[in-house]
Simulated scan of single mutants.
Amino acid sequence: MQVTALILAGGRGTRMGGADKGLVTYQGVRMIERVLARIIPQVDQVIINANRNLDTYQTLGYPVFTDASPHFDGPLAGMQAGLHHTETDWIVSVPCDSPLLPLDLVQLLGAAIVKEKSLMAIARSTSGNHPVFCLMHRSLLASLTSFLDCGQRKVSTWQMQHQPAYVFFEADQAFTNINSIDVSQPNTSHSTSHAS
């Protein structure tokens, strides 16, 4: 299974006062760089979805793609861009503001897809499902485009149409979204997980 990582950095950052969350520093390092450090060893390629500060994101050395729409339509619009531009059959989406993401995310989501013969696998933990941590097949692009064209925006509503596999991760903290510039979280290096 060849996998492209899609880092979702296309939001407005409203919960962080409009800041571009991927470029905000967390423990002295920009959050997107922390996400890259954790996801790169797990995948074959990386692409970034961003709608602001494109020149800055391009300096990271990976292809940067904007949403098809200029209206900041949320994570699904970023996933659509990723599915459209990926060169591999599989793509894993992760948000740019989750610098503690599991180091075994792709491995365990991929194992669940093989086991359950699904086109999509989603992370979950004790705090609930994490729909933007999603491994999906590129053939889902047509379905996602149709969903967006109907004015729909909720990630989980679209995902439920495709009977996704779910993988439980013990380390709930790994999915922490950093929504404050001065938030400090301890480092988490690994997570123990199982499909459910």
Rank of each mutant, 00 (worst) to 15 (best):
G110E: 08
Q80I: 08
I181F: 15
H137T: 12
Y57E: 00
P41Y: 01
N179K: 04
P41H: 07
G11Q: 07
A19E: 12
H71Y: 13
S98G: 05
V3F: 00
D55L: 07
A81Y: 05
H71M: 10
M136F: 14
H84L: 04
N179T: 07
L144K: 05
Q42V: 02
G28C: 12
G110F: 09
R153Q: 12
H190I: 08
D172R: 04
D44V: 03
D97L: 01
D97K: 09
R38T: 01
S69Q: 15
P63Q: 07
D20C: 06
L101W: 01
L36T: 02
L141D: 01
L135P: 09
L54Y: 02
A19W: 10
N177W: 10
P131I: 03
N179D: 13
V29T: 14
G61K: 06
Q2F: 05
L109A: 01
P63V: 01
G13Q: 08
S93H: 10
S93T: 06
P186F: 02
T157H: 15
P102C: 06
L100P: 01
A171W: 07
F175K: 00
C96E: 05
F72L: 11
A112F: 07
Q80H: 15
L119S: 13
A50M: 01
Y166T: 10
S139W: 06
E33R: 07
A121E: 06
N129D: 13
R124C: 08
L119H: 14
L54D: 00
L36P: 08
S189W: 06
P131C: 13
G11Y: 02
G28F: 07
T145F: 00
H71D: 15
T188R: 10
I32L: 02
D182M: 08
T145S: 14
V106F: 09
L135H: 14
P75H: 09
